[in-house]
């Protein structure tokens, strides 16, 4: 395909990405240097790095940062290990597999805010699990600033795990049967089989799921917002903190909000750049 035809096909998408991704990103950087309030959007004022020093000295930013890191550090490995485990189980199920799969996929497919709402209902007053807790421990259960972080993490595992599961499951379907049989003939037990046959086969997928999970966990918004609202601001993640600062009714500081957004972008890119660089090399290698 020659260059002109290529651009003919690609231009609509490229224009959309330039106008609605590249340009806004530049705007974000520019706005990060402005003093700009939500109620007075017409008078931006250049303040240099004031927003950044404001953010970096804001204890709420560091609280959000810490919780986001904890969130990523727990949710990503747990969902991946669980996902792999469930995928292996699902792979062994013969009859009824698609039924199990549909049920297991549901949390991932459902609207995240609704998923969070229904999960939260279990723990609210009169909810099934808060009642169970009361029956078992004899203490009334209430969502509070102390336990809400854990509830968010548990619910997020519930929400994200099916993605890892279904991707690994798809990967297991492409595992050559001869390799499993060869391992069985060699007398491999389950763990050896997992270590020497299954994991090497899934290597690329594990990297893929890991990266996607890190990206998605890092920018988590919906679940956290539903669980905390304006009540438990301690348990806010970077994204929620970011939106709150920028759009809070009457006191929204858009300039500072954008500075946070820029910091968030830099944060995720520190993780991503090696991966992007490797993908770029792969792409170039594919072309020569």
């Amino acid at each position: 395909m020659n260059r002109r035809t290529f651009w003919g096909f690609t231009i609509p998408s490229v224009v959309v990405m330039l106008a609605l991704m590249v340009f806004p990103l530049v705007t974000t950087v520019w706005l990060g240097f402005q003093k700009l309030l939500l109620r007075d959007l017409n008078n931006p004022e250049w303040v240099g790095f004031d927003n950044y020093s404001d953010v970096l000295t804001d204890p709420e930013f560091w609280a959000a940062f810490r919780f986001t890191m904890v969130f990523v550090a727990i949710v990503v490995p747990v969902t991946m290990v669980m996902g792999l485990g469930v995928a292996l189980l699902l792979d062994r199920v013969g009859r009824g597999r698609s039924l199990y799969m549909a049920a297991l996929l549901l949390p991932f497919i459902v609207t995240p805010v609704v998923g969070s709402l229904v999960y939260k209902d279990l723990f609210e007053r009169g909810g099934l699990l808060s009642w169970l807790w009361e029956v078992i421990t004899d203490d009334p259960f209430a969502v509070n600033a102390g336990n809400v972080k854990w509830l968010i993490i548990i619910q997020s595992i519930w929400y994200i795990m099916p993605f890892a599961m279904i991707t690994f499951f798809a990967g297991l379907q492409t595992l050559p049967q001869e390799r499993v049989e060869a391992a069985a003939i060699d007398g491999a037990n389950f763990l050896r089989n997992l270590w020497h046959v299954i994991l090497p086969h899934l290597k690329v997928l594990i990297l893929f799921v890991g990266l996607i999970s890190i990206m998605d966990a890092y920018r988590v918004y919906d679940q956290v917002f539903v669980w905390t609202g304006t009540r438990f601001t301690d348990a806010h993640t970077l994204s929620v903190y970011n939106v709150r600062v920028a759009t809070a009714f009457d006191i929204g500081r858009l300039g500072k909000g954008n500075a946070i957004a820029v910091l968030n972008v830099i944060g995720i890119f520190m993780v991503l750049i090696p991966f992007l660089w490797r993908s770029y090399k792969d792409q170039i290698a594919e072309r020569t």
């Binding site: 920018r219 994204s239 920028a246 957004a261 890119f269 991503l272």
Partner: peptide, 18 residues
């Protein structure tokens, strides 16, 4: 691929402003 990784917040604020 890089854009796929970015938090929504990096876009929603400039969208709103624009």
């Amino acid at each position: 691929l890089g854009f796929r990784a970015l938090p929504r917040t990096a876009f929603v604020l400039p969208y709103f402003f624009g």
